[in-house]
Nucleic acid binder design. Structure first.
Ligand code: MN
Ligand code: MN
Ligand code: ZN
Ligand code: ZN
Lengths: 135, 135
DNA sequence: AAAACTTTGCAACTCAGTTGCATAGCTTTT
DNA sequence: AAAAGCTATGCAACTGAGTTGCAAAGTTTT
């Protein structure tokens, strides 16, 4: 697990056995994953440990969290260069059929003209519909 | 409460005392309100009744709900003509200072080009930042 | 007035997320 | 190498928004 180790240390995360496993699982996903789903990928793993692992990953910008409105937060790997700045923001897509949540990394969030004296900080944009796999 | 009564019956909601009071409170708000906040506007009111009142209002398109990512759903009156169609969708704004959530009724959600074979159904777009009152 | 339906109020529950705390496992100092 | 100190892990218990079951109160229909 040299490669995985590297990804962790590059984000200033100490590479423990658990963290390597979690990163591996996250890397294998084609869509964003919830804490519960992550838990279920393991035979035996503690929810709290996974929870804190995800928090650590998120704080160190290895992953980003997605609030897709389903009631459970999803997590997905950040691009290598991602610093979670406004310019790294992208649209997310929730398929109403398969319930998968996708990062549309190539779809930037369109510009908006806000009312006078409103200052923009960040935007959450979630598109719901049918994904290419379900179509 | 002739006027309030009318708004309810026009949306096929039987005008009970409680419902009139709830609609009155909702009409007075300048920003969207949560179930808990609604509860606190009354001396003594049952959360369940308010909950179900909001559900009834929402089903009948008197109000719409807003998931602003704070963990508590907000509710705001619909425009008279609103049928909660895609064309009635608008951007919402959450002020990170005063924590108020506003309907930006005049700001339509911008068009997006989705990846091939993705079909759009609806969009939730929440802008976070500083509102005009807090600026 | 009785029967049928709707609304309300209370209590209890669900479920995702979160915290406290003790133990286990490293790392650094002596 | 042992002791001390820090970090990660595991379990249990808690939180808070939302939701459901059920009985009582209120309305409408017959
Ligand atoms: Mn993403
Ligand atoms: Mn609105
Ligand atoms: Zn799908
Ligand atoms: Zn504000």
């Amino acid at each position: 697990m040299k490669e995985t180790d590297n990804k962790l240390t590059m984000r200033n995360i100490k590479p423990t056995a658990m963290r390597e496993l979690v990163l591996k699982v996250l890397s294998e996903q084609k869509s964003a994953i919830s804490l519960l789903e992550l838990e279920q990928k393991f035979e035996k793993a503690d929810k709290t440990t996974l929870y804190r692992t995800l928090k650590t990953f998120e704080e160190n910008k290895l992953i980003h969290s997605i609030d897709d409105g389903t009631g459970s937060v999803k997590y997905a790997l950040c691009k290598e260069t991602c610093e979670c700045n406004p310019s790294d923001l992208h649209v997310h897509f929730l398929c109403t059929k398969c319930k998968h949540t996708f990062c549309l990394n190539d779809i930037a969030i369109p510009n908006l003209t806000l009312p006078a004296n409103f200052k923009l900080e960040t935007i959450n944009m979630v598109v719901k519909g049918i994904c290419a796999n379900c179509k």
